[in-house]
Design a protein around this nucleic acid. Structure first.
Lengths: 249, 249
DNA sequence: TAGTGGTCTAGACCACCCC
DNA sequence: GGGTGGTCTAGACCACTAC
């Protein structure tokens, strides 16, 4: 068996210099240990006999893989690996705590907007209806991790804008409106950090990100929120439990 | 409310030239229409009055976002957007068909290996036990989309290596071994295309990819397979349905 | 063979951090 | 001020495609 190997040699797996460099850099990463510093880019370029551009390309890739972090005026350091977050109907706070991290969340913005037609359809309100837009910066152990923008229909949750603060949004929904989440549709894709993302997350523009879009429904199947989040691709992975259709019933 | 805006101006959202370029390129994309060609990189550089390096950086980002595809000796073309795949215990084939795409799958490799300790633990077999490794290239409408590597315990499925072919693996498991999948744990994260990935997928080395790792169990809760896949980040997004713990019971 | 994208270089200048 | 990362340039050469 195993010899329809799809033309092994022909489309040769060429290894660019920047890719090969990664192995040598990884050795330095191992030597430096967690959080340890690497030599500067100019020193690396000279040491490896390549251009600084090539070194930077290799470093950028290692950063995207979560092996390194770069701090602008300061230096390049060994990264702290990825955190696994479960895709579930629970709060960010609980989730981080279960990983032994200290989660914080700062409200960047809370504003009322008129629903665009698309958003209106998602939230089952008339176009132009009042919608509360919440924008949060999520951090863990002081490091910015994700930016999350939620939209909720104020027609269903009158006065909600005055009740959002540091407490869990889902708790507010339950205690003040008797609403409990039943299910959600969550989409995951890759995206790149915009200048605004990069400024908030201490990232580079164009850094690899994971974009999640969540459409949540209550136990009566009515839409509750529409959330778009970007998570640092070098710090996060997500895990979901899939069940057989027969098991759900 | 809404004025703990986290120092709006200070960490200024600088917009690099390559990022600004994207808007102008996007206009050309809209004009060219689906599949249409863009001018060559040298022409773009001259036209926009920037270096070819900067043009390439912008093009690379647009490619990562699925707006463009580049073909080596040929040119740059308007991309075809992302396909949404549902995270569920179903076959790739069924999933693609439901999107009106014509899925194909070629077996790159089928080999027997001795289970490393980690893999052995995942498959609940003794270390060193025979494991069948299957490597497939998944395509849709002729375009390579994903590389999938599955490992199954041959101790549980004797003779499986002779039964894998073009039929669905899950069908073989059911018809010959009476095994049906019950649930799976699926992890999603970003990664970059290795030289081998790039050669198979017609990609660039370092292109943004989605890595999925699936650990599948049968209806008796015994592990059935361990699968690692890489999907082109510019072509795929995934969607999962989340249910409240109370609903599952 | 001519044109396209893919890789790499050497060097410049800017923005930021730390002393 | 001196060092670090971030951006950009102009140009060279290679690999691949199309003719």
């Amino acid at each position: 068996m195993a010899d329809n190997l799809a033309e092994n040699g022909r489309k040769s797996a060429r290894t660019p210099k920047h890719w090969a460099l990664k192995d040598r850099l990884l050795a330095m990463v191992a030597a430096a240990g967690p959080g340890g510093p690497l030599p500067g880019e100019r020193a690396l370029a000279e040491g490896f006999g390549v251009s600084r551009t090539t070194v930077r390309k290799a470093l950028t890739e290692l950063m995207a893989e979560g092996r390194l972090t770069r701090v602008h005026g300061s230096g390049t350091y060994v990264g702290s690996g990825k955190v696994t977050q479960r895709l579930q109907l629970s709060s960010y706070t609980e989730d981080m705590r279960s990983h032994g991290l200290n989660p914080t969340s700062s409200l960047l913005e809370a504003a009322i907007e008129a629903a665009e037609p698309e958003l209106a359809a998602l939230l089952a309100v008339p176009a132009g209806a009042d919608v509360l837009r919440l924008r949060r910066l999520r951090s863990a152990d002081g490091e910015p991790m994700a930016i999350e923008t939620s939209r909720l229909p104020l027609t269903r949750f009158p006065g909600l804008e005055a009740r959002v603060g540091d407490t869990s949004l889902y708790r507010v929904l339950w205690e003040h409106y008797g609403v409990e989440l039943g299910h959600a549709e969550e989409t995951i894709e890759t995206t790149l950090a915009t200048p605004a993302d990069a400024a908030l997350l201490g990232n580079e523009v164009g850094a690899v990100m994971l974009r999640l879009s969540r459409h949540s429904f209550d136990t009566d199947n009515r839409p509750v929120e529409w959330v778009r989040s970007v998570y640092r691709g070098d710090r996060y992975k997500f895990v979901a439990t899939l069940v057989s259709p027969r098991e759900v019933e």
